[in-house]
Write a protein that binds this DNA or RNA. Structure first.
Lengths: 260, 260
DNA sequence: CGTGCCAGGTGCCGT
DNA sequence: ACGGCACTTGGCACG
């Protein structure tokens, strides 16, 4: 089901949007509006965006996305569960089509005002599939639990998501010399705060086991910037560069050839 | 400029996409494709998404966004500066329209394969406006610098973004008793890592000024969960609940009435 | 260009 | 509902 209008009047867009996006039957519908609009947002912050051509998507779950011609992220938006209403407004002589969205917690509202609409379309999307993803942090933790040797020979993992006062330790275990080991895993390049986190876990563990001679802390990440290594060393912590391979050899070359 | 096709064949979409999205003249153009597709992504992670109706946006800066009928975030995407190519593929008997995108750093590729296209449209977006936003963390810092009394009577701010070994202190000053004060500001609910950050700043400052009798650390955020208060207290740190007001009175009531 | 860090972060899963 | 945290985080500012 696809319906659309080219260069509609504000009143026509308004009628169109109401027809396809209101009521229970519109549950699977998505509205796409392309035209010259300005955006006003007030809520956790406040923002203004002047007149310009944008693509706006409204989903029946209440999501509203305003996209400029550049950028991977929407310039303005409302999350799901937002109330959306369509209306026309009289703005000094000319008529405007307005997408008004509002939610209570936190109180936030957004106005998208169109002075011209190039195209509006409504689409019924049939889709029951969910994304299946590999390579999340939990997958890396899985991988290490299944084969602790990738971190260190003789390592034995005893706990996962072990709770401490300062937060949850990703992996907890003992090395070949029975010394406790705390492992913090990052799927992307670690920041100094990851070092602080690990240090806090180690200190917390030492505090709770006053008798323990030593606790090791290992930061495990796909890359390890020099500054991070310095911070780790200063804090008597260790690191392992560990990258899970989801794609084998870098096929950049062969792929690039496809772009000729 | 808006061009579109309803229920085009894969070959027609391919030709359409190439016509409007290739070359320098397409700099301001955006492509919208609505249809039944599946998505394959390989890069920092790997993902698969089965067949279903989606809205796909391709921008001329290389951004690609795949949106399902629900959710505020794209289910799959490529950021700006991605290379995008269009092609047709023969998949067991039927022909497919494929949006293929690729980038080098990090190496990531995504295939969006359409088995049917309900609508494809191309739009020239004229837009030179940028978002003007109020209420960012820097605005809150501005506010406190302009009137330190909102944090504490007699407080005097001396430094902003003061660099330390562990990172940059948002605000640095002295209280009415000339005791140094380190202030960490969060615009949203703070996490334990904010406490660790603040503690690191305080320790670093004490380390550099071995003679200093005392340094105060204050975490300043719009809300302060119990666990955070506990952590702060344990670490001899303080907190202020401080919320900047960008919208005056909560006009939820009057606004809700508009929804009747 | 790498590095660090804020974001109207969003989304997910836990209690 | 609130809290805690990962994310293909994205985006920006700075060395």
């Amino acid at each position: 089901m696809t319906h659309m209008l080219l260069s509609p009047t504000p009143a026509e867009v308004n009628e169109f949007a109401d027809a396809y996006m209101r009521g229970m039957r519109s549950k699977d519908n998505v509205l796409v509006v392309v035209g010259c609009c300005c955006v006003e947002y007030v809520g956790r912050a406040r923002s203004m965006l002047g007149w310009g051509g944008r693509v706006v998507i409204v989903k029946s779950d209440g999501s509203v996305l305003v996209h400029q011609k550049v950028g991977g992220a929407p310039v303005n938006w409302q999350p799901p569960d937002t109330l959306v209403r369509y209306r026309t407004e009289a703005g000094n002589g000319i008529s405007l089509f307005v997408i008004y969205s509002y939610r209570l917690k936190p109180p936030e509202k957004m106005y998208v005002r169109f002075k011209t609409v190039d195209m509006v379309s409504a689409h019924r999307l049939r889709d029951d599939r969910t994304l299946r993803i590999m390579g999340a942090e939990s997958d890396i933790v899985d991988r290490i639990m299944g084969d602790p040797g990738v971190i260190e020979e003789g390592l034995r993992i005893t706990d996962r998501e072990k709770q401490t006062r300062s937060g949850a330790i990703d992996l907890f275990g003992v090395d070949r010399d029975h010394i406790p080991v705390i492992i913090e895993i990052k799927r992307s390049q670690p920041t100094p705060s990851a070092v602080l986190q690990l240090k806090a876990y180690v200190l917390d563990h030492q505090h709770r086991h006053t008798g323990a001679v030593r606790v090791r802390g290992i930061l495990c990440a796909p890359s390890m910037p020099v500054m991070i290594r310095t911070l780790l060393t200063e804090n008597k912590l260790e690191w392992r560069v560990f990258k899970c391979e989801f794609e084998q050899v870098d096929d950049a070359q062969s792929t690039l050839e496809e772009f000729t």
